Amino acid sequence: MTLLLAPMEGLLDFALRDVLTRAGGIDRCVSEFIRVTGTLLPERAFRRVVPELDHGCRTPSGVPVRPQLMGSDAACLAENAARLAAMGAEGIDLNFGCPARVVNRHGGGAALLKEPELLHAIVAAVRRAVPAEVPVSAKMRLGFDDDAQAEDCARALAAAGASELVVHARTRADGYRPPAYWHRVADVRAAVSIPVVANGEIWRVADARRCRAESGGHALMLGRGIVANPGLALAILGDEEGQLPWATLHDLLTVFWGLIVAHIEPRARAGRLKQWLNYLRRTHPEAEEAYQRVRAIADSREVARLLGLPVAPDGPPLRRAA
């Protein structure tokens, strides 16, 4: 079985990729999207989102990270993909699933699912721009307003040279509301000959079992479920419900906090930690208690003290993002 870590804008950044891949069970990560809007980005813009580029495009635990690009200009996306490949990117992923209104208004993300011909043009341009050994993958939803064109979009992506397709089993109109329509992933799989990965609403091992049965495949992409339960990938591989002990999770929180202190301004540190705790409290009673203890506190030093984490000087980041 292949388990991928989802791109989640504003949440699943390099710091969370680090700690979740340390927990084990993840085969590959996809970065948050890098927005491309008519210009060739400087290398520092790519490193800001994917600092793993400076380390063989691997997390500290050795898990590959594939940068994701988002945009609607095929030529510009191709130019930026070529630069990423020259920087040593493990592969190039393309975003055709973001449901954000501001992104869709500008013709990006899931809005492109209304135009299969443009999907084809984008993937074909990126495929031509990067070396043959660099895989080009894509992530899509079932559609924009409905799923009538899901198979057409998948065929367009595969015909253009995509080597793998992740399908978030909801439309843009569905947002993140349950359920996820895993059976439609099976229809997409039947329409193409490339590997298809199922994504959406996998919170527990039982969900993973049902998703695999309904989608007809073995590869899954985990998002909010593994943020809430960092032991989910290992539990899925062991086919038994379970989670990491709180002592292990507290060690991961300590690593996460160290990365936050090193890279994020003091005023945003407490918020980032509470954001993850807010997910963790779905599965860990200790996280619920910790979250309630610090919920109303903005001072990062006080938050660290209350949670038994290293108290850092209330100064600028030790190492700013590139």
Rank of each mutant, 00 (worst) to 15 (best):
S61H: 10
S61T: 13
S61V: 11
S61N: 12
G62E: 15
G62I: 03
G62A: 11
G62P: 08
V63A: 04
V63P: 01
P64I: 01
P64F: 01
P64V: 07
V65H: 04
V65P: 10
R66W: 11
R66T: 15
P67C: 09
Q68A: 10
Q68V: 12
Q68P: 06
Q68E: 08
L69I: 08
L69Y: 05
L69E: 04
L69G: 11
L69K: 13
L69V: 07
M70V: 15
M70P: 01
M70R: 01
G71W: 03
G71V: 09
G71H: 08
G71E: 12
G71S: 11
G71K: 08
S72H: 10
S72M: 08
S72L: 04
A74C: 13
A75F: 01
A75C: 14
A75N: 12
A75E: 15
C76Q: 05
L77Y: 01
L77I: 00
L77Q: 02
L77E: 07
A78L: 04
E79W: 02
N80G: 07
A81N: 00
A81I: 00
A82K: 00
A82D: 00
A82C: 05
R83N: 06
R83F: 02
L84K: 04
L84E: 03
L84W: 00
A85P: 02
A85Q: 06
A85L: 12
A85I: 11
A86W: 03
A86T: 03
M87T: 10
M87Q: 07
M87F: 12
M87S: 11
G88L: 07
G88S: 14
G88D: 04
G88Y: 08
G88N: 06
A89E: 08
A89P: 05
A89C: 11
A89Y: 07
E90W: 12
E90D: 12
E90A: 15
G91C: 02
G91F: 02
I92Y: 01
I92P: 00
D93A: 09
D93R: 05
D93L: 02
L94V: 12
L94T: 08
N95V: 02
N95W: 01
F96T: 05
F96I: 10
C98S: 05
C98F: 07
C98P: 01
P99N: 02
P99R: 14
A100G: 10
R101E: 14
R101H: 13
R101Q: 14
R101A: 14
R101D: 15
V102Q: 11
V102I: 10
V102C: 07
V103M: 13
V103K: 13
V103S: 06
N104L: 14
N104C: 15
R105V: 06
R105M: 13
R105C: 05
R105S: 13
H106I: 11
H106P: 07
H106C: 13
H106R: 15
H106F: 12
G107C: 06
G108C: 11
G109F: 14
G109E: 15
A110C: 13
A110D: 01
A110N: 10
